[in-house]
Nucleic acid binder design. Structure first.
Lengths: 198, 198
DNA sequence: TCCATTTTATGACTTAAATCATGAAAAACT
DNA sequence: AGTTTTTCATGATTTAAGTCATAAAATGGA
């Protein structure tokens, strides 16, 4: 998103997180801008019964957690490192200064937020009113479009576990497993030693 | 959002829509910026079985449908007038010019998108993994916070039909009716001749 | 290399919400 | 005012996804 050199000019510091570390937690007050240098971060919630819902998964060069920063609300979800990750962090004040002094960044932020809102809109409609197979397939197609899934001979390798797909679509693992099997039978995707291709 | 006078400087024209009229449809290419002068607009999808999902409801002074405009994607949902409405419209090009020449507007847009993303995040987690009563109550509380629901002696009047609540939460009308009844029994809200107060 | 954990898998069963049916009350047209 | 449509309401039934149990394969640490 924003050039690391520019972030460093505004006091950016790089922090290391181990797999599973929380970067911030639901209910915290937003005080920083976060951008991934390397690694992978998920934003998630846990409901009353402890079931996880993954809001999104973020990769290299992506930022996360800005919306609450702009509207002065508490974080609606946790941010957790999925693998060991390096994250560059600047304070809210410096970030707003940076925006003010670099008007072309605003458009970048707008586009980024728009992209995420688009994803949420598509998935909201899916989650609320489509059958499991439809939901899984939509998530897969959207992820191919937006994430850096590798194209191999068999198709795009879907780099999610069944559990992650469940947590992203609000389905249980078993249901995801059954949906994927059924989608394979219909020829909508391939399973080659447990990995899913589309 | 944006001053009407400023929109008019950039060629804004006011269009009238009757209740039920489509302003744009899912799959259309985004070519304009829309802002409500008066009336009420919903954005919705229909799934394969014809069930409606309401992405959001927008009121006076609010804009809608910008995300796809910024990222050059087709509209992911329809926009429909819920009651007779006046909408001011400017072309995409003029809108981008306006943004370029009025940098303070960018921050407004960012805040607006952030607010909507925040709503989507909260509701996504709710819809995917909470029981109906929880979902209904969350929608109601969020709507009180964000929309202009009137405070009366009995509490805030929830200005939604049961059907609308269902379409916003992905539940069926009957389920919403039962959830609301149950919530009333628990004392979480009041029903006074069919109207819901919180 | 070995052991613990995670991931994928499948069958049996349970359950909560959807569906279906029906009707009264209220709202919106004509 | 009268008629149509929408909204709210409730009971009975169905069903799809969740839950539970169990296990093999793969992965990841120690």
């Amino acid at each position: 998103m924003i050039a690391v050199s520019l972030l460093e000019e505004y006091g950016g510091i790089i922090k290391n997180y181990k797999s599973g570390d929380f970067i911030f937690e639901e209910g915290n007050r937003p005080l920083h801008y976060y951008q991934i240098i390397s690694g992978e971060v998920k934003m998630n919630n846990y409901n009353d019964e402890g079931k996880e819902f993954i809001q999104g998964i973020f990769y290299k060069n992506q930022c996360f957690g800005e919306p609450p920063l702009f509207i002065d609300q508490m974080y609606p979800a946790n941010a957790v490192a999925v693998i060991d990750s390096e994250i560059i962090i600047i304070t809210k004040d410096k970030f707003l200064d940076l925006l003010k002094n670099n008007s072309e960044i605003s458009l970048k932020i707008i586009k980024n937020l728009s992209q995420r809102l688009y994803y949420k809109s598509v998935m909201a409609a899916e989650i609320s009113s489509q059958d499991p197979e439809h939901r899984v397939l939509r998530l897969i197609d959207y992820s191919i479009e937006q994430l850096n899934f590798k194209k191999e001979e068999a198709g795009f390798l879907i780099n999610f576990t069944r559990q992650q797909i469940g947590d992203l679509t609000g389905l249980r693992v078993e249901t995801v497993i059954r949906a994927i099997k059924s989608l394979e039978k219909k020829g909508d995707l391939k399973i080659i030693n447990r990995k899913v291709y589309r």
